Simulated scan of single mutants.
Amino acid sequence: MIVAFLAVTLSTLGGGAVADAGTSKAVVWYGVKWLVVALAAAGMTGKAMCRGRPGGLAAVKFRRMKIVAANGILILVPCAYLLYARTQVAPVNGWYAALQIVEIAAGIVNLALLAANMRDGLRMRARRIQ
């Protein structure tokens, strides 16, 4: 979902059409709700699989997820809402562009952290199979 959000956002950057920006921001804003649910479910299942206090790679994954959650709650969700709301009432301007850059950067950070968690999860699974 994060890759899709970034793709939708980046696809409208070059075009400059306000209607396209409004549509892309609506897609992201309405999709964020599903992403929050998916990330919460992933965190809860990961915690349940660790059964107690995690160690090793699991502890590293939990630290990353705390950053992902904070980034999402403090930066990505507010940016998604503000950008969506802005495209509904006013033309795209410098403020919008600056906020868009913040959203893209925070999205890339979360994508990288989640990819690292996926990599470590696959490593943990490989160890368990052996």
Rank of each mutant, 00 (worst) to 15 (best):
L10R: 12
L13N: 07
L13M: 13
G15E: 06
G16S: 07
A17Q: 15
D20M: 14
G22A: 11
T23N: 12
S24A: 15
K25D: 12
A26G: 06
V27C: 03
V32M: 11
K33W: 11
L35C: 02
L35Q: 02
V36Q: 07
V36I: 14
A40G: 06
A42G: 02
G46T: 00
C50Y: 02
G52L: 05
R53T: 08
R53P: 00
P54W: 05
P54F: 04
G56C: 01
G56H: 02
A58F: 08
A58W: 10
A59L: 09
A59K: 10
A59E: 03
K61C: 10
K61Q: 13
R63S: 13
R64H: 12
M65A: 13
K66T: 09
A69G: 09
N71K: 10
N71F: 08
I73N: 03
L74D: 02
I75K: 10
I75G: 04
I75W: 08
C79Q: 11
A80L: 05
A80D: 04
A85L: 03
R86K: 14
R86M: 12
V89Y: 11
V92R: 15
V92E: 08
Y96C: 14
A98D: 07
G107D: 02
G107P: 04
I108D: 01
V109M: 06
L111D: 00
L114E: 01
M118D: 00
D120R: 02
G121P: 03
L122F: 07
R123W: 03
R123E: 05
R125Q: 04
R125M: 08
A126C: 01
R127P: 01
